[in-house]
Simulated assay, not measured.
Amino acid sequence: MKAFRPLLALTLALTPALAHAAPTVERVVMVMRHGVRAPIDGEVPAGTLTAAPWPAWPVAAEQITPHGAQALALRGRADRAWLAARGVLPATGCPAAGSVRVWTNTSQRTIDSGEQFVAGFAPGCGIAIGHRAAGEVDPLFEALRAHTTDFRAADAIASIENFTGGMDRLVAKHAAELRLLDRVLACAQPTCSPGAPPALRPTADGRGVELDGSIRRTSGIAQVLLLEAAEGMPHPGWGRATPTVLARIGRLHTALFDVFTRAPYMAAHQAGPLGRRVLAALTAPDGPALDLLVGHDTNVTALAAALGVDLVSPGYAKNDTAPMGALVMELLRDAAGARFVRLSYRTQTPAELGRLGSRVTTTAMTVPGCARRCPVERFAALLGARLASAIKPAGH
């Protein structure tokens, strides 16, 4: 009996250590917004007044800039180091075949973002960037256009009105930001971006909703000013868009998400296919070490809303989206073999992007109704319950 005492003592000593050992990160799923781009045509609406001309951009509308491409490569390098520190991938050299999967939307800015990210993440390794053919609608990123769910505009509008308190109230809520934006534009008029009264209505085809009014018109202007800072322009907003001002007027951009992606009905339908894709990647028996999905701000905000979390990161208004901002879901396994999901949001401030810095902030998130380390079955149940059901395509 005495011969077994040392072994028994060692076993008892190791048991608490095993119980508190750091979990293994098995794989990571990331949903990322594209990188720094030039403004989209109409993002600053026609008729917007300013005291001075807008700055010129080095590329065509909505395309990734050379500065944005450099920032993406730097971000790829930083994320490779971050994942290596978690034991997900080796720190150097080419990842094993099939261990990294990248899928983007069909827009050129998302494809370019995937390519430039990979150029920094695993240079010279030939990792393929997957996407549908040009002109196709990818339901992962454009669920409403793809008609993947039984979307009903009347139900959407009712949800949006309930979530926001109505369009008049939404405008009143952001009156201070509207006045601040006027001061940045410095047009010497009562309102620099005049427009129609606020109105929310179904699109002509009934597969979406449309918004008129000051929030619709100014949200894009606020985003363009932020992109100037992220592009490294020396005087964003003619020198008046300081980091503090950018974060404040960014609330106008988030107000648009309150309508199009964060209201519960909109989140359920906008995030439906993408959310199911994320759950499939997390619950599959095996899969790539990194599964990267590159889309748009609407994808990140809709998925965050479906998860019931706010997007909070330095330099941005709450629930605004950073260029290259990524929701990160780590699949963990503890010593007993139980699996969990850990959620976070990885971003860089506009100033850090502007100076081509490598500092990335990781903000921890907890899904309501679960712990920080959420059991994978619980995570799947919570997210799945908040996603609109898929419908069969016509002819099936």
Rank of each mutant, 00 (worst) to 15 (best):
Y265R: 08
L211I: 11
R276P: 08
V294D: 07
H131E: 01
V367Y: 03
L140W: 00
Q189K: 14
R77H: 12
A61S: 15
A351G: 05
V31E: 03
A394Y: 08
E43W: 09
M266H: 01
Y316I: 02
A21L: 12
N299Y: 03
L382P: 03
L12T: 09
P314W: 06
W82R: 11
F121Y: 12
D320A: 11
V245N: 03
A56P: 04
H269D: 03
F151Q: 00
R342P: 04
D310S: 13
G287M: 09
L293F: 11
E136W: 02
T321I: 12
T164G: 04
G35L: 02
A97F: 06
R201Q: 11
S313T: 15
R109K: 12
E228V: 10
G206M: 11
G98V: 04
I127S: 01
L18H: 05
I221R: 02
R378W: 00
V294I: 13
A335T: 13
A364K: 10
H396N: 10
A247K: 11
R277Q: 15
I64P: 10
A156V: 01
G130F: 11
D286G: 06
L343A: 07
P190G: 06
G135K: 07
G42A: 09
P393L: 07
E210G: 11
T203G: 09
E136M: 11
G315L: 03
C125F: 01
V245A: 03
S159T: 06
L178W: 04
V360K: 08
E161L: 14
W238F: 14
L343H: 05
F4G: 07
L356K: 12
C94R: 10
T321W: 02
C187T: 05
R101P: 00
T203L: 11
T110G: 11
C192D: 03
G337D: 04
V36W: 06
G114D: 09
R77Q: 14
D334M: 00
R333W: 02
L211H: 10
V209G: 08
A52I: 05
A9I: 14
A13G: 15
P123N: 04
G114H: 10
G239R: 05
V59N: 08
E330A: 08
A71W: 05
A247Q: 14
A84T: 11
A154W: 07
F257H: 15
P58H: 06
F163D: 07
E377P: 01
F163K: 02
D150A: 15
F151E: 02
P190Q: 12
T149W: 06
S313F: 00
A176L: 04
N319P: 02
P23K: 09
L74W: 06
R33K: 11
G295V: 10
H174V: 02
T92I: 02
K2L: 14
A38C: 12
F163A: 12
A91W: 12
R276T: 07
R339G: 00
T301R: 08
F141T: 05
R251G: 07
A306M: 06
P95E: 09
A229S: 13
A317W: 08
S219M: 11
P55H: 08
V245W: 03
I129L: 06
P190S: 07
R27Q: 08
D41A: 15
G395W: 00
A271C: 09
Q189R: 15
V224Y: 05
E115M: 10
A388S: 14
P236F: 09
A85W: 00
G237E: 02
T106Y: 04
M233K: 13
